[in-house]
């Protein structure tokens, strides 16, 4: 159990974390630490936290997600939570845990679009905007 890890994949300027199975507290804390370290060393601009494999999220995990989002934002990276199951969303809202300030998307692809869009706006300011595929997205 103690060697258990959640893999963090690099996808261009983003990091993808797929959380699956049972999440316990030590694992959640380790992830928080490793992820923020990776954002710092790789200069990642965004983090995709795929929780589609989680059948429940309690306040400890909710707090972990909010903390990751706050820390990455301080380090100039956005965190998007992707794939939250409907029953999990309903439960979180009823608990009063609404994850303020955390971006969400239906799936990894949409999450990447969201991140690219936000980065795109940031780059437009610095005149360095070069992503044309964004215009071709079909809504």
């Amino acid at each position: 159990m103690s060697f258990e890890r959640i893999p963090i994949l690099t996808m261009g300027e983003f990091l993808l974390v797929t959380i699956q199975g049972e999440m316990h507290d030590t694992l959640a804390t380790t992830l928080q630490r490793e992820l923020t370290a990776r954002v710092a060393t790789q200069g990642a601009r965004g983090v995709l936290l795929d929780i589609s494999g989680l059948s429940m999220v309690d306040s400890f995990m909710g707090r972990m997600v909010s903390t990751i989002a706050s820390i990455t934002r301080m380090m100039d990276a956005e965190t998007v939570v992707v794939g939250m199951q409907p029953a999990v969303a309903i439960t979180l809202v009823e608990m009063g845990l609404t994850l303020p300030g955390v971006l969400t998307a239906m799936n990894v692809e949409r999450g990447m679009e969201l991140l690219r869009g936000r980065l795109g706006f940031a780059r437009e300011d610095s005149n360095d905007y070069g992503e044309s595929e964004r215009d071709a997205i079909d809504f």
């Binding site: 309690d58 999990v88 439960t91 009823e94 608990m95």
Partner: peptide, 13 residues
């Protein structure tokens, strides 16, 4: 499923 998720979450807390 929703009630199951709510009960498990309460139990976890």
């Amino acid at each position: 499923l929703v009630d199951e998720t709510k009960l498990i979450t309460a139990a976890s807390e």
